[in-house]
């Protein structure tokens, strides 16, 4: 039974237990002043599938990502990644354990070339330690391997022609591509994508969609935030909806699309304006 088929028997209720959860979140809260931005009682993310996270603007999706990946602290609660506690761990440790995120507002490293952006992300590089860094023979073979892998990914993401340009000169859509390709250099088991399609033109959107399904087909778990319902409904195996910090519905795409609470949450707020702030 594939991970996707396993979801068939899961009840479409918030907090539903999954047959093979990759990420398990318990009682996670995050308050900003008097406002509770995240208030997740229980959430399980099934391994090896694409889970879409939807919800109107300000629902707390980015804040939840930030908390789970160690970029923000939770006021309470705990969560486990791959069966091991992940709460309170620094972001870089979680990334090394295989939980890698991208940002709603892309964070390419402008004054590094596209290739350098990619090579930076490879894990376990000997030359990244101070001593060996001084002696090229100690790391040049590994560097060549990293570069080959980076070039493969750049070709796959159609960025090969830009490889030696500064990343700061890429267009918005290319930056999204680079960020996703770069995350892959870490070889993550779980990828959290925060609005990977925002501000991307329709042609590139198709590319990005393909890359997201490729991630799943390569056996990775994907949790992604998206506003465009059509996109979410086409590629997600499972959809979770947040509103005002809480999980208000989850289930297979069709079930969530027809869910009363979800429709109310969207109608009750305007969600179409673009966001200009990266929630932290």
């Amino acid at each position: 039974m594939t991970p996707r088929e396993a979801l068939a028997g899961v009840a479409a209720v918030p907090g539903a237990a999954k047959p093979d959860p990759h990420l398990v979140v318990d009682a996670v809260r995050r308050d900003f002043g008097g406002m509770r931005a995240v208030d997740v009682e229980h959430l399980e993310v099934q391994r090896g599938v694409i889970t879409g996270l939807i919800g109107p603007n300000g629902a707390g999706k980015t804040t939840l990502f930030n908390v789970l990946t160690g970029f923000d602290r939770a006021d309470s609660g705990h969560w486990a990644f791959d069966g091991r506690n992940a709460s309170g761990l620094p972001a870089h440790r979680l990334a090394r354990r295989g939980m890698v995120r991208t940002f709603q507002l892309t964070r390419v490293l402008s004054r590094l070339t596209v290739l350098e952006n990619m090579k930076l992300a490879a894990v376990g590089q000997r030359g990244e330690r101070f001593g060996p860094a001084l002696l090229r023979p100690l790391w040049s073979a590994q560097e060549a391997r990293v570069e080959r892998h980076a070039d493969e990914l750049l070709t796959r993401f159609r960025l090969a022609a830009k490889r030696d340009d500064y990343a700061g000169y890429l267009s918005g859509g290319q930056r999204k591509l680079l960020e996703m390709a770069r995350a892959l250099m870490v070889d993550p088991a779980l990828v959290l994508l925060d609005e990977p399609m925002a501000g991307v033109n329709p042609a590139l959107r198709q590319d990005l969609l393909g890359h997201i399904t490729d991630l799943r087909d390569a056996g990775r778990t994907v949790l992604f935030v998206e506003h465009d319902m059509d996109v979410v409904m086409t590629i997600s195996d499972w959809v979770v909806c947040m509103a005002e910090g809480r999980i208000i519905a989850e289930g297979p795409p069709a079930a969530v699309a027809g869910n009363r609470a979800v429709i109310d949450a969207y109608l009750g707020s305007r969600h179409d304006e673009p966001e200009f702030r990266e929630g932290r």
């Binding site: 970029f71 995120r101 402008s110 350098e116």
Partner: peptide, 20 residues
């Protein structure tokens, strides 16, 4: 070296470097 690459990346955006 890769060490220097990390430093230059930190100069650009340390959150991104942490995420990697």
């Amino acid at each position: 070296s890769p060490w220097g690459r990390v430093l230059r990346a930190i100069r650009e955006d340390e959150e991104a470097v942490r995420s990697l």
